[in-house]
Simulated assay, not measured.
Amino acid sequence: MDQQIGPAGVLGDRMGISILEASPERVVATMPVEGNTQPYSLLHGGASCVLAESLGSVGAALHGKTVDRPLALGVDISATHHKAVRSGLVTGTATPLHRGRSVATYEIIITDEAGDRVCTARLTCLLRAT
C-alpha cells in the first residue's frame, strides 16, 4: 500500500483495523470485535462505520492518485446493519461503485468469520488535489 495513505489512520489503529489488501479496485481489512462493542457486548454500529469509511477512503485516495486528486474527503456515508456479532474478527471489503475525477463512491461489505454479512455501507468521497 502507498506510504502516503498510511495503514488505517490513528482511529483505525486504536480500533485494531488491519489493512490486508489495497488498490483502487478493492480494499480489504479486518477489525476485532473485542474492544469495539456497545454496552450489550455487540459490535458497535459506529465501529462498522469507521471500518467502512477507512476502507472506502483508502480506495478513493488510491483512485484519486490516477486523476491527480489524491486527497479523498468523505462527504456521505450510509450503513445498514444486518446481523449482530459478539466476538472474533470482521472483514470489510470495499469495491467501487463510481470512480470519477472529482467524486468516488465505494460499497463496503462487512462479514463475520462465518462469511455472513454483518453490514453493508456506501461511502462517497470528494477527490481533491493536495
Score class of each variant (00 low, 15 high):
Gly35Ala: 07
Val67Glu: 08
Cys49Asp: 11
Arg122Pro: 01
Leu127Ala: 09
Ile77Pro: 02
Glu113Ser: 14
Gly56Trp: 06
Ala121Tyr: 01
Val33Ile: 01
Arg122Trp: 00
Ile110Asp: 02
Val90Met: 03
His63Tyr: 13
Ala61Glu: 08
Val75Ala: 08
Arg117Asp: 14
Glu21Ile: 00
Arg117Ser: 10
Lys83Val: 00
Cys125Val: 07
Arg14Met: 14
Val90Asn: 04
Val33Leu: 04
Gly45Val: 05
Gly59Leu: 09
Ile109Tyr: 00
Leu71His: 03
Ser54Glu: 07
Met31Ser: 05
Leu51Val: 04
Ser87Met: 00
Glu25Trp: 09
Arg101Ser: 13
His82Cys: 06
Ile19Cys: 10
Pro24Asp: 11
Gly59Asp: 12
Cys119Tyr: 04
Leu127Asn: 07
His44Thr: 01
Leu97Arg: 09
Asp68Cys: 03
His81Ile: 08
Thr105Ile: 04
Val103Tyr: 03
Asp76Cys: 00
Ile19Trp: 08
Pro7Arg: 10
Val27Ser: 08
Ile110Met: 01
Ala114Leu: 08
Asn36Gly: 06
Gln38Ile: 02
Ile17Lys: 03
Gly59His: 04
Leu97Val: 08
Pro32Asn: 15
Arg14Thr: 13
Leu42Met: 13
Ile19Lys: 03
Thr80Gly: 12
Val58Asp: 07
Ser78Val: 00
Gly100His: 10
Leu62Ser: 02
Gln4Ile: 03
Thr124His: 10
Leu71Gln: 11
Thr111His: 12
Ile108Asp: 05
Pro70Gly: 13
Ser87Phe: 01
Gly9Asp: 14
Thr66Tyr: 14
Glu25Thr: 07
Gly92Pro: 07
Met15Arg: 07
Ala104Tyr: 08
Thr95Glu: 14
His82Ala: 06
Ile110Leu: 05
Arg14Gly: 04
Gly88Cys: 04
Val90Ile: 11
Ala22Asp: 12
Thr91Lys: 10
Pro32Tyr: 04
Gly6Thr: 11
Arg128Ile: 03
Pro24Glu: 14
Glu34Gln: 15
Ile17Pro: 04
Thr93Ser: 12
Lys65Pro: 00
Gln4Trp: 11
Asp2Gly: 02
His98Arg: 15
Arg69His: 15
Gly92Ser: 11
Ser18Arg: 15
Met31Ile: 00
Asn36Tyr: 07
Gly88Lys: 02
Ala47Val: 04
His81Tyr: 13
Gln38Asn: 15
Ser48Trp: 04
Pro7Asp: 13
Ala52Leu: 09
Pro39His: 11
Asp68His: 13
Leu127Gly: 10
Ile110Glu: 02
Met1Arg: 01
